[in-house]
């Protein structure tokens, strides 16, 4: 029954050329289409970015009182301005990451995963490219508005190096966050309902990831625990790098992100292979 052709003929008789460029091109196109999709509703995009103003205003009031009460110019090496710029970057990342776990688990639950699987791309990479397309604009919007607000509150932002280092680390943050999202989303193949996992992951990010508080302010033991967990390297890593852009710190952030990406990414890949092999589609 197997009479597979060696070459795959294309329109106008072209032979298919599965070059690396063509493969990269398809994920780039997915990224770009999602970008266009986000731009279809500019007001909505702007509205989401305005949320950062509220958060920054709350943080400013909270930390001004805290710094005032201790009377210190800096706490754990961070001035009030450092803390505010840290929190701006942390919130910009947190508010721009797309919750792909929900998308994936919905697709698994209602069976629409089937309609993505019959196209010639990798399901996981498709979601990553699409998620990135959704995040980039939101992140840009958050940064612009967040920077304007925090600048008014505490003065100018850190120098250019901080922006570049943080930018590079944020790219890996999205990738790492995506791996967790994919893991939660794919677990729908087994447990069907994934809200509990999603809730727990969000809370870990908020508390141990450094979204609400720079991890430097934690007691030593809790700091050790947090820094040895992956959540810190999604939020704390890039945000701290933003206000303290040293090469040593950059190296450490990249190393930790790399290790966790290998671990969590490996698990995702393994689970995806297993899940795809024994796929049961709802509503079959």
């Amino acid at each position: 029954m197997r009479t597979k052709e060696a070459n795959v003929l294309y329109p106008e008789g072209r032979v298919r050329d599965p070059s690396a460029a063509a493969v990269a091109g398809k994920y780039w196109a997915i990224f770009r289409t999602q970008l266009l999709n986000s731009l279809a509703y500019p007001i909505d995009l702007l509205g989401r970015s305005l949320l950062i103003i509220l958060f920054m205003w709350i943080f400013m009031n909270l930390w001004r009182v805290t710094y005032g009460a201790t009377g210190a110019r800096s706490i754990a090496g961070l001035t009030l301005a450092d803390t505010m710029w840290y929190l701006m970057m942390a919130e910009a990342v947190m508010l721009s990451k797309r919750d792909l776990s929900e998308t994936i688990s919905e697709q698994v639950k209602d069976g629409s995963v089937a309609y993505l699987l019959n196209k010639p791309f990798n399901f996981i990479l498709y979601h990553f490219a699409a998620g990135l397309g959704g995040s980039v604009l939101a992140f840009g919007g958050n940064l612009i508005i967040g920077t304007a607000v925090v600048w008014l509150m505490v003065g100018p932002p850190p120098g250019m190096t901080g922006w570049i280092f943080a930018g590079a680390a944020v790219a890996l943050s999205w990738l790492l966050d995506f791996c967790f999202s994919a893991l939660i989303g794919l677990s729908a193949f087994v447990v069907e309902e994934t809200n509990a996992f999603r809730w727990i992951y969000q809370k870990f990010l908020l508390l141990l990831g450094g979204v609400l508080i720079p991890l430097d302010f934690f007691p030593a033991w809790l700091q050790t625990v947090s820094l040895n967990l992956p959540f810190a390297w999604i939020i704390y890593g890039p945000a701290r790098l933003f206000v303290d852009p040293s090469l040593a710190r950059l190296g450490r952030v990249f190393l930790q992100q790399g290790i966790w990406l290998a671990v969590v990414g490996g698990i995702v890949w393994f689970i995806y292979r297993r899940a795809a092999a024994r796929l049961v589609i709802n509503g079959g």
């Binding site: 196109a29 289409t33 266009l36 010639p120």
Partner: peptide, 26 residues
Amino acid sequence: WYHLPAVDTFYLFGKIYELDDGSLKR
């Protein structure tokens, strides 16, 4: 894609199916 014109999806599919730009346009 619901919010985009069909031609945007056409171009996306063209890339997904690895068509070159000339063939895709035709």
